[in-house]
Write a protein that binds this DNA or RNA. Structure first.
Lengths: 329, 329
DNA sequence: CTGAAAGCGCTTACAG
DNA sequence: CTGAAAGCGCTTACAG
């Protein structure tokens, strides 16, 4: 910038004015500055700008996996809101690892993002307290923060799972298996709670063998599903706790000897084209992201109100797999 | 940092040493500094650090859509390589808009990313010349740069499409439709070229009515597919130019009166579970991203060699839809 | 082992 | 309409 000023024969401030499109520069001066800029290949350094201005016009998003078909639309929705507010998005995958989540979030803060959106992997977010105190707006999404009172945007996991399982019950099922994600994940236990509630509502007992929480790795899900479908008193229906589980279960059922009913949490592409179509409890990932990002920017605009918990409804999408009657057994 | 130094009763440089874990500080001094840091809630400002150091340890990625199931794994692969090199990732969706691609890329450069990975939306990338001259390492992926000599990592679109169409020909098809993306997109025209080559190899004529390039919006694809499948001399097979087109075509064919063979470019989840399974020309999006990112970091390590074009092979995955014989008709 | 000075490239507040 | 000075929060040499 100094070089540009020297070459154009003007002061630093004038260059700054031209670069930022501020008024109060004669057309002639402006042209001289612009010529110098192209001649020298000048590129403004936003780091310096940020250092002075305070705000960086960027936000950070920590999610579980950039490539997950559920989180990718959430990511995109956050990006669009950020863009509408003139902010850039920095993001990263926690890979469901609390330490990695922490590293990412703090690295984003060190870059002085104005705000942070976090899909929690860990269960203790007190490490963000100094950042929040220093003014970093923070919103959690998909799962609540641990040991921290903060804004959170969730889907109604409990209600959705309850409705999905009740749907299976309504179609005559008495022995229903639940295959969910790891028990430290909030949505996993909420959905399990919904399953238990629906069973209790119907006065049905729950055998421990019908419930399995753990990683969504295909091998584990396959093993557990096959276990529940075998033995003397097999389940006649399965409830899958998220999109990855559902997809694996669909593969298992494709080779099953008798029809097994299935309802999955999360919708997924082509669910309607499988035979039978897969009945799901759909949540709107993009809306989740949009809602969280809008909340964040409202905070950045200075809205001061106590942290709020927003819960978005789910929607049962009936396609066939959830309406299969219990197989004779 | 000044406040921390004052409170700990040490010099600025000593605080800097502690924060950066540099040697040469007595344990006692270090503790005093650390106490002051927590007491004051000090958080290092990376903007200032960047301003001094030159490198920002961050890279930018411009892709078409963060939520696209093809690009999301590419995004994740780039992230993993960046992470392995201690760099953060900033990314954004061009939405297939050249102007938006440019805005994003230049915004990333203004933040002084060390390097840039771009999936081109536009066809003229000379706007990056000053950035590249100033030292921003730049690698293009999925499509080559326009009017700029730069590193690029591609899939073999021409060869893949040629193989896929030849596969349909080998199963007896003579009238094969090609449904591709917009003609300004490099991969779209390369795949069309592959289609024409395969038809020519087999001595088959190509009717203009069998070829359609345009947006991948479902309505358009549906309309064009239905057009090709209707009339007096309908096609007996379709080649779909990318994942989005394939998915729409699968929907159209699900309601078709007679079986129509299909081969799609790009693999997608559950393709094997549809009936019939969808035969595809698969490309490895993650490998594309990984290769591009590794190339970028090699450049950042100072490797000076002329820009290179890397072309990754595709793989024909046979699942049923591409082996259907031509329907009588 | 420790610190004072200069400077990275901008913007802010002020003066002409 | 224009510019000189101070400062954002760090690090880099250099000196003790």
């Amino acid at each position: 910038m100094k070089d540009v000023a020297a070459r154009a024969g003007v002061g630093l401030k004038t260059v700054s004015r031209v670069v930022n499109g501020e008024p109060g520069v004669t057309p002639d001066t402006e042209r001289r500055v612009r010529d110098a800029i192209t001649a020298l290949g000048f590129r403004r350094n936003d780091s310096a700008r940020i250092l002075r201005k305070g705000r960086t016009a960027s936000i950070g998003l920590v999610l579980e996996d950039l490539a997950d078909p559920f989180y990718a639309p959430l990511n995109r929705a956050v990006e669009e809101v950020a863009r509408a507010h003139g902010a850039l998005l920095i993001n990263g995958s926690s890979a469901e690892d609390a330490e990695r989540e922490r590293e990412l979030a703090l690295a984003f803060c060190a870059r002085r993002v104005d705000g942070l959106i976090v899909i929690p992997a860990g269960s203790d977010h007190r490490y963000l307290e100094p950042e929040i105190a220093a003014g970093v707006a923070t919103v959690f999404v998909d799962r609540p923060a641990g040991l921290l009172d903060a804004d959170v945007v969730l889907s109604d996991s409990f209600g959705g799972a309850r409705e999905g399982v009740a749907h299976l019950v309504a179609h005559g099922h008495r022995r229903i298996g639940f295959l969910g994600d790891q028990p430290h994940i909030h949505t996993a236990t909420e959905r399990l709670r919904g399953y238990r509630a629906a069973m209790a509502d119907a006065g049905l007992p729950v055998d421990d063998a019908w419930v399995s929480l753990g990683t969504t790795a295909p091998e584990r899900v396959r093993r557990e599903a096959e276990r529940m479908l075998g033995g003397p008193r097999p389940v006649t229906a399965l409830f899958a706790g998220n999109n990855r589980v559902t997809v694996t279960v669909v593969r298992v059922l494709a080779t099953a000897r008798r029809p097994v009913a299935l309802v999955g949490f999360d919708d997924f592409e082509l669910a309607d084209l499988l035979s039978p179509g897969v009945t799901v409890v759909a949540q709107d990932a993009a809306r989740l992201g949009r809602t969280a990002a809008e909340r964040l920017f409202r905070r950045l605009d200075g809205v001061l109100e106590p942290p709020r918990r927003v819960e978005l409804p789910t929607r049962l999408v009936v396609r066939g797999s959830g309406e299969l009657p219990p197989a004779e057994g």
